[in-house]
Design a binder for these strands. Structure first.
Lengths: 223, 223, 223, 223
DNA sequence: GATGAATGAGTGTTCATTCAT
DNA sequence: AATGAATGAACACTCATTCAT
């Protein structure tokens, strides 16, 4: 699975472009952009938007400060592009591999597995944390994320669960109505890690499994 | 329910030397402190710690900039005191009114009701959001909150649910192990509101009720 | 030998005036003034005029900050009064005890002895250092000191030495023309102590004696 | 005689990007540094360290305030570098041209001539005054000056005078023991000028010559 | 008179942004 | 395209001075 426009993992290595440059090949340009974004992710997630210094981003990217402005018009745009660039088409992937009649347990299991493997411990976790922390100050980003990620995820979940609900699966209707309940422990995992990870580590895997157990075993009370 | 040292809701109104500056009466001093903290809450939650300007805090509190430094030694301490001062002894209240043999449903219902009435829409929600957003940059605050609020809450929840688990209540054991699962939708409610509240309001009440429904109806799978 | 208006040595002890004050007896007022000046000497000579904080002066004097302004209209005046208040009528003393026909050696010996006993290691040394350091920024002080101290000293020295010169004492005429040469080692002693006292203490007594030796043994070359 | 790193006399004139800002040529950088130091000398010696405003330094140097921080990390370092940069290798020069068997009169004459021509009326006088005024608050500077200038000068003087003393030159032994006595009138000249120069100018040349006359004619008393 | 809380102008320092090379 | 020196607006914090009590 690749992520559109996202820096490949591990290229934090400062690359100092030699004096003799050709003509700015598109690949080289893209590569630089990626390197800058990777550096930006690191610096922004360590200090937050306002306290992050573009000096640090440039140094970490191995470019001059002015170079940043060849790729991004200003700090805010760099930040927004950063979040945009790491946008995970995870839900699209999930949607593609979801057959129309998937059993909800299987769907939910796959859903959580993707979070564990594709988000936890990766740059996506840092992006997610950045979004949670700073999103309220960047309405465009929030709106963008809602449109591109959240609402798609909601539709996907609702699609599967509504069908399941019609087939009488308990609790499916409720989750279809509030898909946030499905995702909530993931969000909490990210926040817990950022706040209390040092002093009180959380068994995220265990928690997520417990969450799935609760959901898939629950029965709607009959009115 | 009172909150130690917390400004009363709604006194954002700049008060200029109330009814005659008394010779440093403790009440007047406390009042000023409260006013400054209320202004700080507003400014900090609008801009975040780094981007908040003490000029604005002072202006909003109706005091001179230098006055802030009579009450707090610097910006960071003001911020930390802000979060500290609004610390809700909510869990203590809850613990006090929890009889030893409360049925878990009742306990959970009361728990969520307190969140709805004492957090949602109040300054505590803003403080909570501030904590979530900035906490990772303030280890002291995180540690303080964990010690004073989180770990107490966890113990309280575990106390009730472990008993319930012994009495055979389904899902109680799981929740006792991961009390975060109980709280997760509340956290998500706060974050959703800050990010998507404008574009896609969430029926928090409905979601919380649905969550409770899921939990209290769930049955642990029999092994 | 007393010094007009100078705080008695050793009253750094903060004196907190009781609530019940009579009517501000002149003595009490004078006493306070003295205490403030003593504190000011300490703070000013430690930090210099600009970097000295009136807060510290007040604290060290054991009075409230506002009280300073009851005694001195502002920081600069306090500083000037400080130097004025410690003005040593040393030369007057010396003049009084100088008989008209004193032998120049005896006069010079007495002169240096007064410096050793009345200046070195006393507050006068600190005042002198303050004058040297800050005087150029306070023309009034410089002018005052010149008028009250320096020009009198010069006249005194010239009076004695001119007579001695007429009697054929070698080098007296030269010193009468440039009395600064007589005083120079004292000035250097004060400066050396402030700059290098820690790393390279100077035997001031020895130096002064050597100076006297040089002067009293020197012979003007016969033209 | 040139002085390492010292601005040439008279370039207080703000130079705006000379003849086209080259890509950080070392010369241009050095030049800027020199200009800033020259401005700093002016501002610091007019107001003293604490009262000097970096705004003024920048304005006088013809650069933006931020530019100062490209050359010096903070005000204090700028000040220290200022004094360091004007460090006169005068004694080295003097030492080099001093033959091993120079007659003490000649040596002293040369010594005073250097002071008259190389210090009086030059930036070195202002630096010296700054050192005298502020040195006690900057132990590093005092220590540095003692090591680089004072102790070297002392050794030089002692070298010459001890030899002379062995050859029976009167007063040489005394001066060798307290070289400060040789320098004292120079120090007094600087201080007198700063304090009383306006109201009572001193014939420094005359005084120094008189001083030399006194020294070279004096005879140690035979015990 | 004495107090000390309050004021607000002032200053050192930072850092996003520009632009000559 | 890339650089990085230069800019200057912005901001946290200080402190001499005031004034209600």
């Amino acid at each position: 699975m690749t992520v559109t426009g996202a820096p490949a993992a591990g290229d934090n290595i400062p690359v100092r472009a030699g004096r003799g440059r050709r003509k700015a090949s598109p690949e080289a340009t893209d590569e630089r952009r990626r390197i800058i974004l990777a550096a930006a992710l690191d610096v922004f997630s360590r200090h937050g938007f306002a306290a992050a210094r573009l000096d640090d981003v440039a140094a970490q990217a191995g470019v001059a400060k002015g170079t940043l402005y060849l790729y991004f018009p200003n700090k805010q745009t760099l930040f927004q592009e950063l979040i945009r660039s790491y946008l995970s088409p995870l839900f699209d992937k999930l949607a593609q591999e979801t057959p129309p009649d998937v059993p909800p347990q299987a769907f939910i299991a796959r859903f959580f597995e993707m979070f564990r493997t594709q988000v936890l411990g990766t740059e996506r976790q840092r992006i997610l944390h950045l979004l949670i922390s700073e999103g309220s100050r960047f309405p465009e980003i929030a709106e963008f994320y809602h449109r591109e990620v959240v609402s798609r995820g909601i539709e996907l979940v609702q699609g599967v669960l509504r069908r399941a609900a019609q087939e009488g699966v308990p609790s499916a209707a409720t989750l279809a109505q509030f898909p946030q309940l499905l995702v909530a422990p993931m969000i909490v995992a990210v926040i817990w890690d950022s706040l209390f990870g040092r002093i009180h580590p959380l068994d995220v895997d265990g928690m997520l499994k417990a969450h799935v157990r609760l959901l898939t075993s629950s029965e709607e009370p009959k009115p």
